[in-house]
Nucleic acid binder design. Structure first.
Lengths: 109, 109
DNA sequence: TCAATAGTTCCGATATTCCGAACTATGGGA
DNA sequence: TCCCATAGTTCGGAATATCGGAACTATTGA
Protein backbone atom coordinates (compact mmCIF):
# COMPACT_ATOMS: atom_id res chain seq x y z
CA UNK A 1 0.00 0.00 0.00
CA UNK A 2 1.39 3.37 -0.96
CA UNK A 3 2.23 5.67 1.93
CA UNK A 4 -0.28 8.40 2.69
CA UNK A 5 0.58 11.94 1.71
CA UNK A 6 1.28 14.36 4.54
CA UNK A 7 2.29 17.94 3.73
CA UNK A 8 5.55 19.24 5.18
CA UNK A 9 4.98 21.84 7.86
CA UNK A 10 6.18 24.61 5.55
CA UNK A 11 3.64 23.57 2.95
CA UNK A 12 0.69 23.78 5.30
CA UNK A 13 -1.64 26.54 4.11
CA UNK A 14 -4.00 28.58 6.27
CA UNK A 15 -6.80 28.29 3.72
CA UNK A 16 -6.55 24.50 3.86
CA UNK A 17 -6.76 24.50 7.65
CA UNK A 18 -9.74 26.85 7.66
CA UNK A 19 -11.48 24.90 4.96
CA UNK A 20 -10.89 21.62 6.79
CA UNK A 21 -12.24 22.98 10.07
CA UNK A 22 -15.13 24.92 8.52
CA UNK A 23 -17.10 21.68 8.44
CA UNK A 24 -18.59 21.00 11.88
CA UNK A 25 -18.24 17.24 11.44
CA UNK A 26 -14.54 17.54 10.65
CA UNK A 27 -14.11 20.05 13.46
CA UNK A 28 -15.69 17.56 15.88
CA UNK A 29 -13.44 14.77 14.63
CA UNK A 30 -10.37 16.94 14.94
CA UNK A 31 -11.38 18.15 18.40
CA UNK A 32 -11.52 14.55 19.49
CA UNK A 33 -8.16 13.66 17.94
CA UNK A 34 -6.51 16.80 19.31
CA UNK A 35 -8.20 16.90 22.65
CA UNK A 36 -8.09 13.30 23.76
CA UNK A 37 -4.34 13.34 23.52
CA UNK A 38 -4.48 9.71 22.53
CA UNK A 39 -4.42 8.25 19.08
CA UNK A 40 -7.80 7.43 17.55
CA UNK A 41 -8.78 4.92 14.90
CA UNK A 42 -11.15 6.16 12.20
CA UNK A 43 -13.84 3.83 13.47
CA UNK A 44 -13.95 5.96 16.63
CA UNK A 45 -15.85 8.52 14.57
CA UNK A 46 -18.58 6.34 13.13
CA UNK A 47 -20.91 8.83 14.80
CA UNK A 48 -20.51 12.49 15.71
CA UNK A 49 -23.04 13.48 18.31
CA UNK A 50 -26.12 11.51 17.26
CA UNK A 51 -25.32 11.79 13.58
CA UNK A 52 -24.10 8.64 11.85
CA UNK A 53 -21.25 9.25 9.43
CA UNK A 54 -21.03 6.81 6.52
CA UNK A 55 -17.66 5.14 6.13
CA UNK A 56 -16.98 6.74 2.78
CA UNK A 57 -17.71 10.21 4.11
CA UNK A 58 -15.57 9.57 7.15
CA UNK A 59 -12.69 8.46 4.99
CA UNK A 60 -13.06 11.65 2.97
CA UNK A 61 -13.12 13.84 6.10
CA UNK A 62 -10.00 12.20 7.50
CA UNK A 63 -8.26 12.73 4.17
CA UNK A 64 -9.14 16.43 4.17
CA UNK A 65 -7.76 16.83 7.71
CA UNK A 66 -4.62 14.92 6.76
CA UNK A 67 -3.96 16.87 3.56
CA UNK A 68 -4.53 20.14 5.42
CA UNK A 69 -1.67 19.11 7.71
CA UNK A 70 -3.82 18.83 10.83
CA UNK A 71 -3.37 15.13 11.48
CA UNK A 72 -0.94 12.34 10.78
CA UNK A 73 -2.27 8.91 9.86
CA UNK A 74 -0.45 5.61 10.15
CA UNK A 75 -1.65 2.15 9.52
CA UNK A 76 -1.24 -0.22 12.46
CA UNK A 77 -2.35 -3.63 11.44
CA UNK A 78 -5.91 -3.51 10.25
CA UNK A 79 -6.63 -0.06 11.59
CA UNK A 80 -5.48 3.49 10.90
CA UNK A 81 -4.22 5.57 13.80
CA UNK A 82 -4.77 9.30 13.71
CA UNK A 83 -2.46 11.64 15.60
CA UNK A 84 -2.91 15.36 15.83
CA UNK A 85 -0.19 17.64 14.43
CA UNK A 86 -1.31 20.47 16.74
CA UNK A 87 2.07 21.24 18.21
CA UNK A 88 3.73 21.38 14.79
CA UNK A 89 1.01 23.57 13.31
CA UNK A 90 1.06 25.78 16.38
CA UNK A 91 4.71 26.51 15.76
CA UNK A 92 3.93 27.72 12.28
CA UNK A 93 0.61 29.46 13.04
CA UNK A 94 0.69 30.32 16.74
CA UNK A 95 -2.66 30.27 18.48
CA UNK A 96 -4.64 29.37 15.38
CA UNK A 97 -5.84 25.92 16.32
CA UNK A 98 -6.49 26.85 19.93
CA UNK A 99 -8.60 29.83 18.89
CA UNK A 100 -10.62 27.72 16.47
CA UNK A 101 -11.25 24.93 18.95
CA UNK A 102 -12.17 27.47 21.63
CA UNK A 103 -14.61 29.12 19.25
CA UNK A 104 -16.34 25.81 18.52
CA UNK A 105 -16.38 24.94 22.21
CA UNK A 106 -17.98 28.25 23.07
CA UNK A 107 -20.54 28.08 20.28
CA UNK A 108 -21.45 24.56 21.32
CA UNK A 109 -20.49 22.78 18.17
CA UNK B 1 -34.18 48.81 -0.92
CA UNK B 2 -34.52 46.21 1.77
CA UNK B 3 -31.98 46.43 4.58
CA UNK B 4 -29.09 43.99 4.43
CA UNK B 5 -29.08 41.08 6.83
CA UNK B 6 -26.44 41.11 9.55
CA UNK B 7 -26.39 38.30 12.11
CA UNK B 8 -26.55 39.23 15.79
CA UNK B 9 -23.29 38.57 17.58
CA UNK B 10 -24.79 35.60 19.42
CA UNK B 11 -25.80 34.05 16.12
CA UNK B 12 -22.34 34.23 14.61
CA UNK B 13 -21.07 30.70 14.00
CA UNK B 14 -17.45 29.57 13.93
CA UNK B 15 -18.04 27.42 10.87
CA UNK B 16 -19.36 30.44 8.98
CA UNK B 17 -16.30 32.49 9.90
CA UNK B 18 -13.91 29.72 8.92
CA UNK B 19 -15.74 29.09 5.69
CA UNK B 20 -15.75 32.79 4.84
CA UNK B 21 -12.04 33.14 5.50
CA UNK B 22 -11.04 29.83 3.90
CA UNK B 23 -11.14 31.56 0.54
CA UNK B 24 -7.92 33.52 -0.03
CA UNK B 25 -9.72 36.22 -1.99
CA UNK B 26 -12.20 36.81 0.82
CA UNK B 27 -9.40 36.64 3.37
CA UNK B 28 -7.53 39.34 1.44
CA UNK B 29 -10.64 41.51 1.25
CA UNK B 30 -11.30 41.06 4.94
CA UNK B 31 -7.67 41.76 5.84
CA UNK B 32 -7.97 45.03 4.02
CA UNK B 33 -11.27 45.97 5.68
CA UNK B 34 -10.02 44.94 9.12
CA UNK B 35 -6.49 46.16 8.85
CA UNK B 36 -6.92 49.55 7.23
CA UNK B 37 -9.09 50.61 10.09
CA UNK B 38 -11.01 52.75 7.66
CA UNK B 39 -14.20 51.93 5.87
CA UNK B 40 -13.86 50.56 2.37
CA UNK B 41 -16.23 50.62 -0.58
CA UNK B 42 -16.65 47.37 -2.52
CA UNK B 43 -15.02 48.95 -5.52
CA UNK B 44 -11.79 49.07 -3.50
CA UNK B 45 -11.52 45.32 -4.13
CA UNK B 46 -11.93 45.24 -7.88
CA UNK B 47 -8.56 43.52 -7.84
CA UNK B 48 -6.81 41.41 -5.21
CA UNK B 49 -3.10 41.26 -5.86
CA UNK B 50 -2.95 41.16 -9.65
CA UNK B 51 -6.12 39.14 -9.92
CA UNK B 52 -9.19 40.95 -11.26
CA UNK B 53 -12.40 40.11 -9.39
CA UNK B 54 -15.59 40.41 -11.45
CA UNK B 55 -18.27 42.57 -9.86
CA UNK B 56 -20.68 39.70 -9.42
CA UNK B 57 -18.08 37.58 -7.64
CA UNK B 58 -17.08 40.49 -5.49
CA UNK B 59 -20.67 41.09 -4.50
CA UNK B 60 -20.95 37.43 -3.56
CA UNK B 61 -17.75 37.52 -1.48
CA UNK B 62 -18.88 40.60 0.42
CA UNK B 63 -22.20 38.91 1.11
CA UNK B 64 -20.47 35.83 2.52
CA UNK B 65 -18.34 37.98 4.83
CA UNK B 66 -21.40 39.95 5.93
CA UNK B 67 -23.55 36.89 6.61
CA UNK B 68 -20.72 35.28 8.55
CA UNK B 69 -20.80 38.31 10.85
CA UNK B 70 -17.34 39.55 9.92
CA UNK B 71 -18.33 42.87 8.37
CA UNK B 72 -21.13 45.39 8.48
CA UNK B 73 -22.28 47.01 5.24
CA UNK B 74 -24.13 50.28 4.88
CA UNK B 75 -25.13 52.13 1.82
CA UNK B 76 -23.85 55.68 1.64
CA UNK B 77 -25.20 57.32 -1.41
CA UNK B 78 -24.24 55.35 -4.43
CA UNK B 79 -21.64 53.23 -2.70
CA UNK B 80 -21.57 50.58 -0.01
CA UNK B 81 -19.29 51.06 2.97
CA UNK B 82 -17.81 48.02 4.62
CA UNK B 83 -16.79 48.10 8.28
CA UNK B 84 -15.12 45.28 10.11
CA UNK B 85 -16.88 43.69 13.09
CA UNK B 86 -13.54 42.48 14.47
CA UNK B 87 -13.92 43.87 17.95
CA UNK B 88 -17.40 42.41 18.34
CA UNK B 89 -16.37 39.02 17.03
CA UNK B 90 -13.26 39.07 19.19
CA UNK B 91 -15.44 39.41 22.26
CA UNK B 92 -17.32 36.28 21.32
CA UNK B 93 -14.36 34.27 19.96
CA UNK B 94 -11.24 35.72 21.56
CA UNK B 95 -8.13 35.61 19.43
CA UNK B 96 -9.79 33.88 16.50
CA UNK B 97 -9.60 36.61 13.91
CA UNK B 98 -6.12 37.71 14.96
CA UNK B 99 -4.80 34.16 14.70
CA UNK B 100 -6.32 33.71 11.25
CA UNK B 101 -5.01 37.00 9.89
CA UNK B 102 -1.58 36.28 11.38
CA UNK B 103 -1.57 32.87 9.74
CA UNK B 104 -2.32 34.38 6.33
CA UNK B 105 0.26 37.09 6.86
CA UNK B 106 2.89 34.52 7.74
CA UNK B 107 2.05 32.22 4.84
CA UNK B 108 2.19 35.17 2.49
CA UNK B 109 -1.36 35.06 1.28
C1' DT C 1 -35.47 63.37 -16.89
C1' DC C 2 -31.22 61.40 -18.32
C1' DA C 3 -26.61 59.61 -17.73
C1' DA C 4 -23.11 57.74 -14.82
C1' DT C 5 -21.64 55.00 -10.97
C1' DA C 6 -21.98 51.17 -7.59
C1' DG C 7 -23.76 46.95 -6.52
C1' DT C 8 -27.15 43.01 -7.03
C1' DT C 9 -29.57 39.33 -9.25
C1' DC C 10 -30.15 35.80 -12.65
C1' DC C 11 -28.63 31.80 -14.74
C1' DG C 12 -25.75 28.44 -17.14
C1' DA C 13 -21.13 26.20 -16.81
C1' DT C 14 -18.04 24.14 -13.73
C1' DA C 15 -16.45 22.19 -9.48
C1' DT C 16 -17.36 20.10 -4.81
C1' DT C 17 -19.63 17.31 -1.58
C1' DC C 18 -22.15 13.36 -0.14
C1' DC C 19 -22.92 8.55 0.35
C1' DG C 20 -24.07 3.65 -1.24
C1' DA C 21 -21.79 -0.11 -3.40
C1' DA C 22 -17.82 -2.40 -4.71
C1' DC C 23 -13.09 -2.87 -3.77
C1' DT C 24 -8.33 -3.42 -1.22
C1' DA C 25 -5.36 -4.39 2.70
C1' DT C 26 -4.23 -6.71 6.90
C1' DG C 27 -4.36 -10.20 10.53
C1' DG C 28 -6.27 -14.34 12.71
C1' DG C 29 -7.68 -18.72 12.72
C1' DA C 30 -8.44 -23.64 10.85
C1' DT D 1 -2.28 -22.03 2.84
C1' DC D 2 -7.01 -20.43 2.28
C1' DC D 3 -10.81 -18.12 3.95
C1' DC D 4 -13.14 -14.86 6.77
C1' DA D 5 -13.76 -10.63 9.40
C1' DT D 6 -12.43 -6.01 10.15
C1' DA D 7 -10.92 -1.31 8.68
C1' DG D 8 -10.65 1.81 5.36
C1' DT D 9 -10.47 3.45 0.27
C1' DT D 10 -12.18 4.21 -4.30
C1' DC D 11 -15.79 4.72 -7.73
C1' DG D 12 -19.65 7.02 -9.64
C1' DG D 13 -23.85 9.55 -9.84
C1' DA D 14 -26.98 12.76 -7.56
C1' DA D 15 -27.32 16.98 -4.95
C1' DT D 16 -25.17 21.28 -3.88
C1' DA D 17 -22.14 25.24 -4.19
C1' DT D 18 -19.19 28.46 -6.74
C1' DC D 19 -17.90 31.55 -10.60
C1' DG D 20 -18.70 35.12 -13.76
C1' DG D 21 -21.06 37.47 -17.86
C1' DA D 22 -25.20 39.94 -18.86
C1' DA D 23 -29.06 42.28 -17.43
C1' DC D 24 -31.06 44.71 -13.71
C1' DT D 25 -31.78 48.14 -9.60
C1' DA D 26 -30.62 52.06 -6.71
C1' DT D 27 -28.71 56.50 -6.01
C1' DT D 28 -26.69 60.98 -7.19
C1' DG D 29 -25.68 64.85 -10.04
C1' DA D 30 -26.42 67.63 -14.11
Amino acid sequence: MRPLFHPALDDVRPEAILHALSDPVRAAIFTQIAGMGCVQACSAFAAVGDRVIPKSSLSHHIKVLREAGLIRCERHGVEMRNHSRCSEVDQRFPGLIAAILNAYAKAGA
